[in-house]
Nucleic acid binder design. Structure first.
Lengths: 137, 137
DNA sequence: CCAATTCACTTTTATTTTGCAAGTGAATTA
DNA sequence: TAATTCACTTGCAAAATAAAAGTGAATTGG
């Protein structure tokens, strides 16, 4: 558990992992535009950290080589159940939640199914990024 | 989810909640002794934050009035499922994990049961602190 | 009782981290 | 080929943190 705190007990790492796992963000520029407003030096620093701790892998876009994207590793994807638990908690206790009731329903009725749905979504986003699909490896 | 990040997206709040929910810590002095080594000014600051965000309630020990303890609210206790999810992840990915295999087994076989077990544990610790038991209210 | 100690904080100061703004250089587009 | 996009770096002021030394109420020991 101390291990977990070390890796994403930092606000910005937490936000980045959330954006990769739940919001389909992949490109450096995507992260810069997050609502929380991360500054570019901190972003570069945290992406490097997450790469070192094997949560993200860095890829130069083969089509447009001035762009770079980051993909979540299996280790990062394994955070999904915990993250969905956090989402449920937010839905329960955030008086300003914008989450649709369908999310809470799906999570209580079939948590494993919800995780599978988000996993599939990650694959779908990855598939749009050339060298992410198993076929290209 | 931004709500969650705001409340415990801070390393020290995260550690304090973990210690209250999972390690039975209640007294100011208990937290000071955490392995992560929080300094006393930060501890006071974070306890106040967690009180303001209604995660903890502050109580002067009626037996020894120079001591103070903090109890997790329902809102904090509702984090248990997410925290246990994080524990599972740590067990999976921390090469130096010290968690017994029995934890992973219990979690995979009966997650709801595991949450209930930790909830009961919280009550047990609380019961040792006079005005925490429903009977004294 | 009363002096010494415990306990939960505060205050102060040095150090570290952050956020902002302005680069930099490779790659791409016009 | 000049202008622009993109992923970072650098420099600096401001904010947050850690360490150490108080502070004051409550408690204990003699």
């Amino acid at each position: 558990m101390r291990y977990a705190a070390g890796i994403f007990g930092d606000k910005w790492c937490f936000v980045l992992l959330r954006d990769v796992l739940l919001h389909g963000k992949r490109y450096y520029g995507d992260f810069l535009g997050s609502e929380e407003g991360i500054s570019t030096n901190i972003l570069a620093n945290r992406l490097a950290q997450l790469e070192k701790s094997e949560m993200l892998t860095r890829h130069v876009d083969p089509v447009k080589r001035s762009r770079v994207y980051y993909l979540p590793t299996r280790k990062a994807r394994d955070l999904l159940p915990a993250f969905l638990g956090l989402m449920m908690w937010s839905v329960q206790h955030d008086p300003a939640t914008e989450s649709p009731p369908s999310f809470a329903k799906a999570m209580t009725e079939d948590p494993a199914g919800a995780v599978a749905w988000y996993e599939a979504n990650i694959d779908k986003v990855n598939a749009t990024l050339v060298d992410a699909s198993p076929k290209s490896l």
